[in-house]
Design a protein around this nucleic acid. Structure first.
Lengths: 345, 345
DNA sequence: ATTTTTTACGCAAACGTTTGAGTGGTTTAA
DNA sequence: TTAAACCACTCAAACGTTTGCGTAAAAAAT
């Protein structure tokens, strides 16, 4: 309930005005005299009147709030993105509703439905790994919902998108490993249905082939559940270690996969980087103090969130239907630490 | 906007019934015949009618949603708590709205106000470090808002609370350091206005005095902004290292302070645990793979969230006003890793 | 002095629900 | 056979706003 019980009706009664006069005074309508406006405003302030957002949304059909769907807030990348979203949204008077899909398609659908019912004015979403069908979003977009994708985007939906240069990020990381003398570079990534996975895979592949190395499918592990399931990562690492020619380096494509791989290597007592080097996408603030310090491809997460929100709000506030959409590609940053530097012999 | 445009009115028109009949049929009222109910339900399902939550909330005065205020979701402890909250809330048909105070009193007040305007049925809150006045919450409670505190609680508000045994957690950690032979144990904590700080401080102190050691205020550093400000931690560590008798161990009281301290010690090239041992409260999943692996006091974060939500929902669903409140104290877990084991000479 | 315009406000419908009170028609009891 | 009971449904007000339209009174124009 709204506990600050005073309504526009109370004000009207108290001031001997009609409800509509009060409403219009509050909204600074030209129909109302300055004197009355002053009177109403003052009374409202003194009794700290707050308009009921439910009633307003119901009436106006929009809510000044935007919905967010991410796989998990328990992930530095996404929580940083969310901070970027919040900063931009709040500055324009919008509030945000955060939901988690936990990498589940069903939960994603459920969250999106829930959000639209709560009359969000726009949606910011990074798809779950499980999602390979975006009909639920397409339908909503057709009905007029503004959507902006970030991170894990869909190619079949035409709208604004904010991503990083996944190809280059992956290329740089792989290049770095190659330049450091590693030759058997494995790749642990997530579901092949995800945009991010493919772009990073391509960057990895390009770096390899530029060095005249063929890509070996045995060296690539797809962990469908990605962040969720540690067992999956453990199995992937086990399989890699069981290969005839063990990899001498691993490039991991996702935040959670990177740290989980490090964990797993620890458990197996694999020396890093002596036995196996490691570099991966991650935004963890702890990269410097991991053992060993973790080389990483870092994404400008806050900026992603900020930018995506800026674009979403521009869609929402646009007078005329927008048909020209833009995909913003932000640069990643290669942060070389100890986990990928070949030990001096 | 609600994009699934069909309303109860549409159903009524289509089925030649009155709006109220449809509404009652949907809510399975005894006033409606089975035949009509079936008819309505079927039509509603086929055209996937979803009630407009705004309208429902407006009418019923409650929203089936609960608000959360934490300092930052970018903190494993809180994101784990939130997962616990979600699991319990969803299972009972409630949804959650997450907000961050970023350790700011003003933001906390703003978030709480915002949430209540959105007709939340209850509030789950962990106070910001800056907060030393809970009038804003007291007032809301008096007006009928159900509040459950967790983690950082207020003693002046009488309601359900869920915390861990902070005293024992701190005591255990300090005891462990003492048992390991450390004698000059420093303590880095947050604002002294916070419940958690004082309880942990007391545990630390108790362990020291049981070992016949006096507490030395020089060894205790209060970082007002706690998690927020890395500089503050760096300064605290600098000051500790500048003491005539340098500490040989540090016990850190908060999640973010713990990892920040480790970071700082790294930067200063302090060997852990050789020069200084470290143990602290933290729920990071990366404790095992930090350098060195980080001894920690671990909190059952998921369970805290689950339990707090359970209590909040019981308040919300209680027929009669509740006057007997309970404080649940969950145990912490001491996880000893390498950062606190005295190296064998 | 009359008409026109402007000003400042009120009325009432609408947003999508819920719910108590009312109402014909059928069944049951006397 | 009539009154009482019940059934299945409709009416209309309400939740707190917003907004197009209507309208007295005052001001301006003729």
């Amino acid at each position: 309930m709204n506990f600050d019980a005073i309504t526009i009706r109370d004000i009207a009664r108290e001031l001997n005005l009609s409800v509509s006069t009060v409403s219009k005074a509050l909204r600074d309508s030209y129909e109302i005299s300055e004197k009355t406006k002053k009177l109403v405003l003052e009374y409202a302030r003194e009794n700290n009147y707050r308009p009921n957002p439910m009633a307003q949304s119901l009436k106006k059909g929009h809510s000044k709030s935007i919905g967010i769907v991410v796989s998990s807030i328990d992930n530095q990348f996404f929580s940083q993105v969310i901070n970027g979203i919040e900063s931009q949204a709040y500055s324009q008077g919008y509030n945000v509703i955060i939901t988690q899909s936990h990498e589940s398609y069903d939960l994603e659908v459920q969250n999106v439905n829930h959000l639209t019912q709560w009359a969000i004015d726009g949606l910011l979403i990074s798809l779950s790994t499980e999602t390979n069908n975006v009909e639920h979003l397409k339908k909503l977009q057709d009905q007029g919902l503004h959507i902006v994708f970030f991170d894990r985007i869909s190619n079949v939906i035409d709208t604004h998108k904010v991503i990083v240069d996944n190809f280059k990020g992956a290329y740089d990381a792989t290049r770095h490993l190659l330049d450091s003398g590693y030759r058997h570079i494995a790749h642990i990534t997530s579901s092949a249905t995800t945009s991010v996975t493919n772009e990073r895979l391509a960057g990895y592949q390009q770096a390899l082939s530029e060095s005249g190395l063929a890509m070996d499918e045995n060296y690539i592990k797809y962990c469908q559940q990605g962040a969720l399931n540690l067992n999956e990562i453990e199995q992937a690492v086990d399989e890699l270690l069981a290969l005839a020619i063990k990899p001498d380096a691993i490039f991991t494509a996702w935040d959670r996969i990177t740290t989980s791989t490090l964990s797993t290597l620890h458990k197996l007592d694999v020396k890093i980087p002596e036995e196996i080097a490691l570099i991966g996408f991650t935004n963890t603030l702890l990269a410097d103090i991991l053992n060993p310090s973790l080389s990483s491809v870092h994404q400008p997460a806050f900026e992603i969130g900020r930018k995506a929100t800026e674009m979403l709000l521009s869609l929402i506030n646009s007078k005329r239907p927008v048909t020209e959409f833009e995909t913003i590609i932000l640069p990643t940053e290669l942060l070389i630490r100890n986990s990928s530097v070949k030990p001096v012999l």
